[in-house]
Amino acid sequence: MSIPPANQSNPLKNYPIIDELDDDIILTVKNISKLIKVHEETVRRWCRNGYVKTLSPFGAYKIRGIDFKNFVIQWYDIKDKHR
C-alpha cells in the first residue's frame, strides 16, 4: 500500500464517525449532538456564532455534511496551534 503524500492526508482519518459523513448529507442539531456526543445547545451555539455554515439563517438549523466536516477540521487545526 502506498503512503499518501503529506499534503493529501485525511485530517479526519482518526475520527471515523465524522469521516463517514458524505458531503451532501443534511444534518440537524440533534443528529450532530447524537453522533459526536455533545449537548444540542453546544451545536446550536456553533451555528448561532457562525462557526458552522448552516442552510437556514435562524432556528431549525440544518447543516450540510461538507460544512460540518470543514468546521471540525478547522476547529482541530486551531486547537493544534494553541497547543
Binding site: I17, E20, D22, D24, I25, I26, N31, K34, L35, K62
Partner: peptide
C-alpha cells in the same frame, strides 16, 4: 435511494443512517 435518506429517516439511528449512506455511495 440517496435522495430519500438525505435527511435522517425516523426508523434509523444516526449511526445506521450514516452507514447506509456510506454504503450506497
Amino acid at each position: 435511494q440517496l435522495d430519500v435518506i438525505v435527511e435522517k429517516p425516523k426508523h434509523m439511528t444516526e449511526l445506521q443512517w450514516t452507514k447506509q449512506r456510506h454504503m450506497l455511495l
